[in-house]
Design a protein around this nucleic acid. Sequence first.
DNA 1: TTGAAAGCGCTAACAA
DNA 2: TTGTTAGCGCTTTCAA
Lengths: 335, 335
Amino acid sequence: MVTIGEIARAAGVSISTVSKSLNGYKEISDQTRNRVKKIAEQMGYTPNAAAQSLVLKRANTIGIVYEVESGLKNLFFAAVLESFRKHIQSKGYDILLLSNNTESKLDYLKHSHSKNVDAVLVISTDESYEAVKKLFNSDLAVLSLDPKEAIHNTIYSDSYSAIRKSCNYLYELGHRKIAFINGSYQNFIGLERLRGYLDFMKEKGLEPLYLKNRSNESYTFHEGYQTMKALFEAYGLPDAVCTVSDLMAMGAIQFFNNHGYHVPKDVSIIGFDDLDICEITTPQLTTIRQDYEEIGLRASEALIEMLDKHIRMLEPIVIDTKIVVRDSCLKNTKY
Amino acid sequence: MVTIGEIARAAGVSISTVSKSLNGYKEISDQTRNRVKKIAEQMGYTPNAAAQSLVLKRANTIGIVYEVESGLKNLFFAAVLESFRKHIQSKGYDILLLSNNTESKLDYLKHSHSKNVDAVLVISTDESYEAVKKLFNSDLAVLSLDPKEAIHNTIYSDSYSAIRKSCNYLYELGHRKIAFINGSYQNFIGLERLRGYLDFMKEKGLEPLYLKNRSNESYTFHEGYQTMKALFEAYGLPDAVCTVSDLMAMGAIQFFNNHGYHVPKDVSIIGFDDLDICEITTPQLTTIRQDYEEIGLRASEALIEMLDKHIRMLEPIVIDTKIVVRDSCLKNTKY
DNA sequence: TTGAAAGCGCTAACAA
DNA sequence: TTGTTAGCGCTTTCAA
């Protein structure tokens, strides 16, 4: 590793002149600056991030926190994170994975401070919500993707309208017995989705078919299967099922397959997320698309804005969704 | 952020005594060390990683490099990375995502040096293989998951035997017309899988049904679909299809669905990877399981060993696979 | 326009 | 057993 000291010697100038040249200070003459820059280039100089970080008190690094069990294997998070990474890195920031399942080390704030992390993207929170709260109450720039409450510094898809869109699509296909596979009753997004469903059903004068007492926390295939089973036992065969995740929708489809019903002929099912795998199942899944690319982009912009403008409070950022029609919903011909 | 200087003042000792106490030097008396530790604890001390990194010339950080288009969305990488992260973090290392699509910044080595990264896990390499080669030729501890050549410092599933296992399973079910959906002809793993197939078919005196001139680089659903199409056009309906990825297997299934054939009744298909989604498709996919957990664990152990023992050269680490039987293969009743 | 020097927080060699 | 101090590579204030 070549240092600015060696460049200084090679160029016959002082260390501070090199530093200023490299950092584009205008007080250095063009001639000197260009010469220094060229020499640095030739010598293959790369700044020592630790040294910079030590004096500047920032590391141009964004921390990522997630606590969902599946971790990186969660397709929704992976999609958002991939977009976020692309955009934030193009602005010169690196990404540090902060999550740790290690016993005592659940203190994200300490970890972030220790590593001089500038900002943190909280992808999902579970048990240790306290540790995340400490992040929010700190001096760090923080943004959360999956808030437990509708607080500031959050970014998410407009779930309420999304579910209404979803239900309305089924409604317009002629379905009336529309069951709902719910998500979490413990966090904001999950409750928003429920609210969307209940409001829609009420407005149309339809009876809501859902499970009041079953909160689903992981949005998995298995949860979808079990919830569909319970719904079926409670209400019989619906015309259509509105769900809060693609995997849950696929679980529901599996349930119907196993019980002699055909999707979409006997029952229509709509997902939520638009994961890549929607196209590889049979039937291909009609679903609500979350705009991962946009979420990642806006998250990166928001964090950078907070950093640049030294603000720490941000209104919630709400991203629009759209319906993606594939093969899992059909016109109702029963009535 | 409290510093060791403040602790020193609070404890009435010198800075170096604090440093040595905190780092467990035995030359400090138990009494002093414990007192210092307790005070540090009370004051909420966390070491400044940048300062440590600057003097120690390492950052307890492992860099991750990947260049595959899908990035984190690649289910295989996500699974390995999640396991790797878990294990490496339990040893006190952090993970820094080094990949960048930014124009000039493809120099992983410089980036690693700049960030004082101790070791690098190369998850996949594409175009910029040169940049990766520079990593291998550097002083860093490097391990690659998806080597282009069978070189040192690599870790991968035993693909040759895996495919033989796979073919043999189909063979023992009575299938003889066994087609092969190949992967890359440009890298080691892909060629190993082909070799496994060809050797097996030769030993059994069967005609290999595969595409000599079609190298598949991305192992996607779409590639699987297209390859199956070409195979079908070249050889007609096979008894069974051996594939090199679950997604390709699903692409093949889709192809058969679209052309009026039923999997597994008309044709058996076996995947490779054992992604989570194998269980959510219909039929559930019989496949070869790559032991992600083990790969991540062994990768972390290998890297740490290289760091601790100051070695940089490691024999290839080969991980065993096993077959996971689900519903996509059936006994052949044709003959 | 350039340079000298202090200092960021820490480790470790050396001195006491 | 503890303390003093140099120095890691860099930025930035202040002086020249």
